[in-house]
Write a protein that binds this DNA or RNA. Structure first.
Lengths: 332, 332
DNA sequence: AAATAAACTGGAAGCGCTTTCATTCTGAAT
DNA sequence: ATTCAGAATGAAAGCGCTTCCAGTTTATTT
């Protein structure tokens, strides 16, 4: 591996000059630059990124911390982040928190220790306070899918309330009046917001909100099924079920079928997120689109702009959900 | 940020000694070690990983290159890799090839330039020859889901033929004799192997293999649907369809339903991979399990053993598929 | 042609650590 | 008490680059 010394010797210029052309500095004459470039090519020189990082105190890498690497969500997200980053000559170091607070914090430390220039966080377990404190330290970061008001310009999130609203409104428009709701854990911000939107739509349509039509799940498939079982066991009456995410919707559909309900004829379903598998379901699931890719891309661009001073662009923090109409809702 | 100098000064020992305790060297007296550890704690010292890398010429990171980050496969894989790596104090740098040869090669160079100590590759587009050549260079690597005979001890893969065999055999056991096959692209190793297993099972049962019952798809959902349409248009007769992966199976099921076929009563389906969404399908898809997690874990352990000399363990290169019986196959 | 500013270049220190080598210390064996 | 291997330590030279500073060259203005 050729080093900068050899390039400098072959080109007949100083180290500094080589470094300058490497970093695209102004104030290098065309002649010098040509000599250096020629020497680099001849030696097939590849800069040692580690040495550069040490000397310059920046690593050209951004750390990504996610609670869970599997599931239908993160692939799409990482894909957008990685693409955007690599186009900018940066790269992603990825760690997972494996859904445990200490583990998430370890992941954070790990990334900070690796001298990541910035971080992208998609974390559940770490508290607002911790993140607010972190925002005062040196490493800049953005937060996905969560809005912490004290640092909201670092946050990128969906208008969850609008999403919940759109879903319920659509069901109402299709003639449903008895609408059950399977929620995510109400300790989570997105769950409560989605439910709030749901209630708002009901209120607008003068449909009373009934507590006994709500089941609090945990975003996993199984809890969708549990939700349906719960509702049926309690003899709740409903013609449609709005679910706080697609996984629960799929579980709920399965549960409904276990009870011999025809979908959508006897029971309609609407999901949330527009995960890729919703098209595979039968019937295909009507749902609310969560523009994950846009959000991931935007957050990465925020970093490119604010940390690497590369892009000049407008930043949007809140993203807009959209109804995706498929076959799981019956017109009544 | 405290440096090793400050630790050394506070502890009243030399740089070398601090470095030694940092790296768990032998030949440090208990007394020195205690002093150093105390000083480190007091200063809240965190070693600079970049500097360590530069001096020691190893980065404690392993590069992961995948063709595509999204899809149902990679999340699980990355999750296993990351977990295993972090437990060993190493970390993952992840890049994606975005399914394009040049882009995959760029990704490779990227990781090599970052001085990754080893690489984990899950790539489609890069040729065998390129990888064989790469195996002669400095950076060690493993290859997932692909067997290149010249470097097969670096390869971790499924016994695809056995998988195809198990699927067909199961259908036959359930009384099916007219079995259609929707294949992945036959330019890909795994596709041809799976098909070979399929043929073998037919042969064993003295069922003639009919070319007109085979459709070559591309592993995507849509091509499963196309496959069914193709078969029906050509008036092929079949009671079951074996698919080379789950996504095509889901597409095929949808296609069958478009033609008003009851599943599994009029047409049975079996998939391949046991992707997580197969449980969401209706009916739940009978399929062949691909132990992604095991494979990812094993490959990571290979690196821990051979590159970092950490583990002593037996390496298995070939993994065994298993039938997962669910509801999409009818007993005839 | 002289004066001045601007562009360009090179020297050298340093980023924070590892690692060789030589030296000193320790304790067991004689 | 003497010897000597082995353990413990420290000094110093890098790892490959960036960057500040000072010095030199070139261009511009008068």
């Amino acid at each position: 591996m050729a080093t900068i010394y050899e390039v400098s010797a072959l080109a007949g210029v100083s180290l500094s000059s080589v470094s300058r052309v490497l970093n695209d500095h102004e104030h290098v004459s065309k002649k010098t630059k040509e000599k250096v470039v020629a020497a680099m090519n001849k030696l097939n020189y590849r800069p040692n990124t580690i040495a550069r990082s040490l000397a310059s105190n920046r690593s050209n890498s951004v750390g990504v911390l996610v609670s869970e690497l599997h599931g239908p969500f993160f692939g799409a997200m990482l894909s957008s982040i990685e693409l955007e980053l690599r186009n900018a000559g940066k790269h992603a170091v990825i760690t997972a928190g494996h859904s445990d607070e200490q583990s998430e914090i370890d992941g954070l430390d790990f990334l900070i220790d690796r001298k990541c220039d910035a971080l992208i966080l998609l974390v559940d377990a770490i508290s607002d306070d911790y993140l607010i404190k972190l925002s005062k330290s040196k490493t800049p970061f953005v937060i996905l899918n969560r809005n912490i008001s004290e640092i909201s310009d670092h946050c990128f999130y969906l208008d969850n309330e609008l999403g919940g609203y759109l879903a319920a409104k659509y069901l109402i428009k299709q003639g449903h009046k008895e609408i059950a709701y399977i929620s995510g854990p109400l300790t989570k911000q997105d769950s409560t917001e989605r439910l709030a939107g749901h209630k708002k739509a009901l209120a607008e349509a003068n449909i009373p909100f009934k507590e006994n039509l709500v089941y609090e799940g945990n975003y996993l498939t199984k809890s969708g099924r549990d939700g349906i079982n719960f509702l049926i066991k309690n003899k709740a009456k409903f013609t449609a079920v709005a679910c706080s995410n697609d996984e629960m919707a799929s579980g709920a559909m399965r549960g409904a079928r276990d009870h011999k309900l025809l979908i959508p004829e006897q029971c309609s379903f609407i999901g949330f997120d527009n995960a890729f598998f919703t098209e595979y379901l039968y019937p295909q699931l009507t749902t609310i689109n969560f523009p994950v890719n846009d959000m991931a891309k935007m957050s990465t661009q925020w970093i490119l702009k604010n940390v690497y001073k590369q892009k000049e662009l407008d930043i949007t923090n809140m993203f807009i959900p959209k109804l995706i109409e498929r076959q799981s809702v019956q017109q009544n």
